[in-house]
């Protein structure tokens, strides 16, 4: 059960960080006219095509005692980054980045440009337009982004193995735990964990698809209304 709780904790942290960082990043990617934008788009999408081992390998190097990240962390917090929970969070954020950013970009881009124009001629600046028009109309995308990054982090294996290792209570997540059980031929235990993960993933994806339907959209708006109505 430790492993499951750890996975939950990791996925929560990662989704929260991705939401906070993904919103401005997705906003910039959706609305910037910069010519080199495609380069950053490619970087964001990289984790979709790279094997987790490749990503994990470079993150591990960067976090190592001689890597730039590892050194900086050592200076500020007095301990290394590799094989810690914090290191695991950082690697997972990178690994799940496209799952948060791409739904956000898609929903920002689907907001009618005329609504943004209307907001501007009514005197609103970019931030106000974002908070009062773009964001409320992107609720389904927001929920999709949150849920996908949560689910993707819950299920990751390769990156965790590379960066976090296998320390009980610190970096041993559900997927690693299942792998351990299988290695030691404890199939019943492995099955229990695997089934839990399967059900969670199914439930989470059901939420995503429900939200993307019309009904879900209305639920999303209703959720948002008390926040924006003054």
């Amino acid at each position: 059960m430790d492993a499951l709780l750890l996975s939950f904790r990791l996925a929560l942290c990662v989704s929260a960080i991705l939401l906070a960082g993904g919103l401005p990043l997705a906003y910039w990617l959706a609305y910037s006219n910069w010519r080199g934008k495609f380069l950053l788009e490619a970087v964001v999408a990289l984790p979709l095509v790279l094997p987790p081992t490749v990503l994990g390998f470079y993150v591990l190097i960067a976090m190592g005692p001689r890597g730039p990240l590892g050194k900086a962390w050592q200076t500020f917090f007095g301990h290394g980054l590799a094989f810690t929970f914090e290191g695991l969070v950082l690697a997972s954020v990178l690994y799940s980045l496209p799952f948060a950013v791409q739904p956000l970009i898609a929903s920002f881009e689907s907001v009618d440009q005329k609504l943004l124009d209307a907001s501007a001629v009514l005197g609103a600046g970019r931030l106000r337009t974002f908070c009062r028009v773009i964001l409320p109309l992107s609720i389904p995308g927001l929920i999709t982004a949150l849920v996908l990054s949560f689910a993707h982090t819950m299920g990751e294996f390769g990156v965790v193995l590379m960066v976090g290792g296998n320390l009980a209570g610190v970096t041993r997540t559900v997927s690693i735990d299942i792998y351990d059980h299988v290695q030691s031929l404890e199939y019943a235990k492995a099955n229990r964990m695997a089934l839990v993960l399967l059900l969670i993933s199914f439930a989470v994806l059901s939420v995503v698809y429900a939200v993307n339907r019309q009904v879900g959209r209305q639920i999303g708006r209703r959720l948002w209304t008390p926040w924006t109505a003054k």
Binding site: D112, K114, L115, D117, A118, S119, R132, V133, P136, L137, R221, W224, T225, T228
Partner: peptide, 9 residues
């Protein structure tokens, strides 16, 4: 605007 662009939410 021609489409009015009222905020739907």
């Amino acid at each position: 605007f021609q489409t009015l662009a009222l905020f739907p939410h």
